[in-house]
Structure formats: structure tokens, C-alpha cells
Design a binder for these strands. Structure first.
Length: 265
DNA sequence: ATGCCCATTTGCAATGGA
């Protein structure tokens, strides 16, 4: 079962690039972030024609997540528990009914800039809610994939220029501590599990985001902020994890690229 | 130290992104 996470930065602007990649990469499940559209504005029929079941959790203009799956989906839930007043569309889960069912949580974690400030407080509170939620889900002891745009640079090696991010919400110590609390619940960072050693001059296949500004892609000034975290039962099924960096160089790209895993499920 | 670029909006300047 091939599961990919991809921040598309707007479904309206990315319909062509996303379709091209889906046809080439043929993921069984595509977990999308920043659809930037309400559910009714999402072109579900277009993806159904490509063979995908479609579930969305959108809002106008900003945020919004979606699941595309060639396999049937069950038990779809929308929104991250823990704050009834939170109206931002950033979390969507479903059970993917393959030979062995896999629960997928798709998330778009808050950016948090500027830090400090209320946006940073929201980010850290959101991560605490995620930690609480995942404690419960991990107790099920089933294959679980928690993936999406985490807006977290886990370690210095996950940035081409780590010093440029020292004061940024993506790399500040409290952000990384919250990440580690989540990972230490018993989750495996799929990319780092498959690529434990970074070469001295990492190529673009080690990063998942390049800013549109200042020629970041051409200089490979990237960061790795899109992640797939696996429960022990999912980690046992892990066959591969790769980043489809090349599509960042195409016409009308998102500033993120897909990261995918292959599970023996 | 700041902007660079891109997507969106009951839109043409402002906001959010990272």
C-alpha cells in the first residue's frame, strides 16, 4: 500500500500538477494539505474519475485537508479533538480497507510564526492536543500512519541552512521538543528510518519544501517538514520511503513535494 | 535588517504562508 502526503498549496491552482503526479506515482492513498477550498468547491468528481474515493475537510481560503484513496475508506473523522472552539480545518482521519486495514491521520500542523505570539501558542497547543489524541490511538496497537505537513524541522540535518531557521517557529526548541514528545509515544519517522545517514551534501531528495522566493529550489535551499510517523504495527510493514522532489522543478509547482511510504499491507 | 514569491479574496491591496 503506497501512502503519500502532499501539501498542494491550493487545489484550484494545483489541479493539473496534482493530476499529473497522481497518474505517474499512482499512490493508493494521497493525503493532501492546504486545499484552500470549502468541501463543496473541491473537484471530487475529477478524482473519482481517476479511481479515487474522496474525503475532504475544508474551509474557505485557508488550510483544509483531503484524503484520496483507491481503496474503500471507513470511519472518517474530521477535526482534531480537544478544543471545540477551534474552527481551523487541519485534521482528517479514516481507515483504509486494504488486505490489512491501515488507519491514516492526515494533518496540517499550524505554522506558528511569528514566535513568540498567539500563533505560536496555538501551534504548541495544537501539538499538545495531537499528543493526547495519539496516546489513545496508539493503545489500539494497530497499523497507524500519522502524516502531513508538520511544519517542524526535526533536526539540523533536515535543513540545508539550519542557522537560517534558529528563530523560526518551525525549528525553535519548544517546537522540536513537542515533536519529540509525539515521536517518543512510540512512533517511527519513516523517512529517517529508511535514510538514517545524511550525506555531506544532501540532494533535493532529502527535503520536502523549498520557498518560492530567492531561488530556493535552484539552490536546493530546502527543509524537511512533511513527515509520515508510523505506529509500531505500521513500522513493521514499512518497505520504502521516498520524496518525489523532481516535481518541484515543473511548471506551476506547489512549494512542497510528495513524501510517500510503501507498506506491506 | 528586509524583501524576494505565490495563492486567495463577494478581490485589484491585504493576508497567510514558511
Amino acid at each position: 500500500m503506497k501512502i503519500a502526503t502532499f501539501n498542494i498549496n491550493g487545489i484550484k491552482a494545483r489541479i493539473c500538477a496534482l493530476t499529473d503526479w497522481l497518474v505517474e506515482a499512482r499512490p493508493d492513498v494521497a493525503v493532501l494539505q492546504e486545499i484552500k477550498a470549502q468541501d463543496t468547491a473541491f473537484p471530487a468528481e475529477h478524482f473519482q474519475d481517476l479511481g479515487y474515493h474522496v474525503e475532504t475537510h475544508g474551509q474557505k481560503s485557508f488550510n483544509g485537508v483531503a484524503l484520496l484513496s483507491r481503496l474503500p475508506l471507513e470511519d472518517v473523522t474530521r477535526g482534531l479533538p480537544g478544543d471545540a472552539a477551534d474552527e481551523q480545518a487541519r485534521f482528517l482521519t479514516a481507515r483504509v480497507m486494504g488486505d490489512r486495514p491501515v488507519t491514516v491521520c492526515g494533518l496540517y500542523l499550524p505554522n506558528g510564526n511569528p514566535a513568540p505570539g498567539p500563533k505560536y501558542d496555538y501551534k504548541l497547543a495544537w501539538m499538545a492536543r495531537l499528543e493526547t489524541y495519539l496516546k489513545t490511538r496508539l493503545a489500539e496497537e494497530e497499523p497507524l500512519v500519522v502524516c502531513g505537513d508538520y511544519n517542524i524541522i526535526p533536526q539540523a540535518e533536515d535543513a540545508a541552512r539550519p542557522d537560517a531557521w534558529r528563530a523560526d517557529a518551525l525549528f525553535l526548541p519548544p517546537s522540536r521538543a513537542a515533536w519529540r514528545r509525539i515521536v517518543h509515544l512510540g512512533l517511527t519517522d519513516a523517512f529517517r528510518a529508511r535514510h538514517p545517514h545524511m550525506p555531506p551534501h544532501p540532494g533535493p531528495e532529502h527535503y520536502s519544501f523549498w520557498d518560492y522566493q530567492a531561488g530556493a529550489w535552484n539552490r536546493n535551499d530546502g527543509i524537511r517538514i512533511d513527515h509520515l510517523l508510523l505506529s509500531p504495527q505500521a513500522a513493521d510493514l514499512l518497505q520504502d520511503c521516498q520524496i518525489d522532489s523532481a516535481i518541484r522543478g515543473r511548471d506551476k509547482p506547489s512549494d512542497h513535494v510528495p513524501v510517500w511510504i510503501d507498506l506491506a499491507a
